[in-house]
Each structure stands twice: as structure tokens, then as C-alpha cells.
Amino acid sequence: MTVLLQLLFQGVGIGAVYALVALGFVLIYRATNVVNFAQGQFAVVGAYGMVVTTADLGLPYWLGILITLAVMALFGALFNLGVYYPLRNRSFLPVVISTIGASIFITNIILGVYGPEPSMLAPMLDAPGISLGNLFLDAQYLTIIAVTLALVALQYLFFEHTLLGKRMQAVSQDKEMASLLGIKVGWMIMLTFIYSAMLGGIAGILVAPILFVSVGLGGQIALKAFAATIIGGFGDVPGAIVGGIAIGVIETFGAYYISVPYKDAFAFIVLFAFLLLRPSGLFGEKVSQKA
């Protein structure tokens, strides 16, 4: 029973990271109808932001986080201008390839500077964690879960209770109509990229202390976040969160009970099953329209 709970806790913790990246995917997808294949690299940039600020420059943790977030915002804006905006009127394939190109670019810039050896970061908190009987709740994982919960709540408030949030939703549902109403579509998309990059960055900041920071991190996180979005129902915000956590739990259990080397395969097997049996995902398409 303890093992079960311990695994569940860990699975939810790592799943929360996938959920954050998946959320970034979903937001960009809804705003632009394009899957951003460089989303995982956003997390890598965030993680290396922490390496640069706290390990290399020796800044305090809180300052490192602030600087990293600011850099992520700028990075999201540049990403939009360089990778998406010039191709916004083309079909999805060129944009997808362009984001893949960006992913190669980011990976290799970091690789060029830091090399393939992973970097280590000090833990975010001094306290190791909380013990509940035989169950040990690691502080890092607790932080991840808490931050994810807070972000999800904030995002909910933003989208449901502010006019700006409604405008961003309108843009994601019908760009042409939104521009006819006077909503600044280009600016809304810019905001989406900035926010999405910051989400990715936060995911990177959160995992940096528990995993070794390396460029390979992005690809694995991104692919699992993809899987999460599809399991949750493409373009669905709650679906991405549930999907992310589901993937985290599945692979943690799979690794413990079935096979460690194939840990990374479980997400894809579940993904395959969903794609073939229920491509609309757990939450399906909520908006049905006449063909």
C-alpha cells in the first residue's frame, strides 16, 4: 500500500511537469492551430536559465527564477516572430517543420555552449520533505505539484473571468471573426507564445533540481506532453492536465512493476491505443459543429 502511494505521489509529481508543458502546447495550438514541436525545448531553456543564473553566476534562487522567467517571456516573443509569424498564412506542415527547425537550433546552441554532459543543480528548498508514516513526500515533488495547481487555478481565473482571457479564447476559436470585432489577433497570439514559453520555462525550472539538466531533457518531456494532449483530447485545457498526470503515473508504475528500460515506451503505447481507439481523447471534442 505504501509503495503504491509512494509511486502515485511520484507519478503525479512528474506528471505535473508534463502537464505544464502540455498546457503550453494546447494554448499555442488553440491560438494558431499549429503544434509547436519546440515546446520541450522551452523547458530546456528554462532549466539552463537556472543553471546559468544560480550555478554559474551564483545568484540566489529567487533571483534566478525571476531572471529566467523574464528571459522566457522574451524568448517566447522572439520565437513567435522568427518561427511562427512569417509562416502564419501557410498550411500546417511548413509551420511544423519550422518549429522542428527551431528545436534543432535551440538544442544545438545549448549543446555548443554546455556540451552533452548534464549539469546538476542544488535543490530548491532546504527541507528534504515530509514523512507521513512510511510515506515520504519529497519537497521537490511537493513544490512541483503546488506550483502546477496554482498555475492551473490562475489560468482558469484568467480565461474565465477577464475580458483579455475571453479575447484570447475568441482568437483561438475564430481568428477572422475576432479581427472583425477589433480584437488585435496578432497581439493575442504574441501573448500566447509569451505565456506558453513561460509555462515551459517554469516546467524546466521545476524539474531542473530533480533531473540532471541536459538538452535531451526537452525531447522526452515534449513527446510525453504531446501524448498527454492527445490522451486528454487535443486542444482541451483540463484534458492536457489530466493527460499529463496520467502519463506520469502510468510510466512510474510501469517502470516499477514491468520494466525500467521500457519506461519511456509506456506513454507511447497508451498514446497508440488512444489514437486508434479514441482519437478524440478522454474529453472529446466539446464544440460540435455542422460539417
Binding site: 475571453k166 466539446k286 464544440v287
Partner: peptide, 26 residues
């Protein structure tokens, strides 16, 4: 103001939200 063919109501927003967004030009 242009009300295009096929109404183009935002499907995932409520009626009131749709109305409020109509004033996005001012």
C-alpha cells in the same frame, strides 16, 4: 461592423461573452 455570412458566433463562449466581445473596438 461586419456581421459575416454564417453568423460566426464564438462556439465555446457564452451568449453574454459573445456580446461583450462585440465592443472590442473601443
Amino acid at each position: 461592423a461586419h456581421v459575416p455570412e454564417g453568423r460566426r458566433v464564438f462556439p465555446g463562449l457564452t451568449v453574454r461573452e459573445n456580446i461583450l466581445l462585440g465592443a472590442s473596438n473601443r
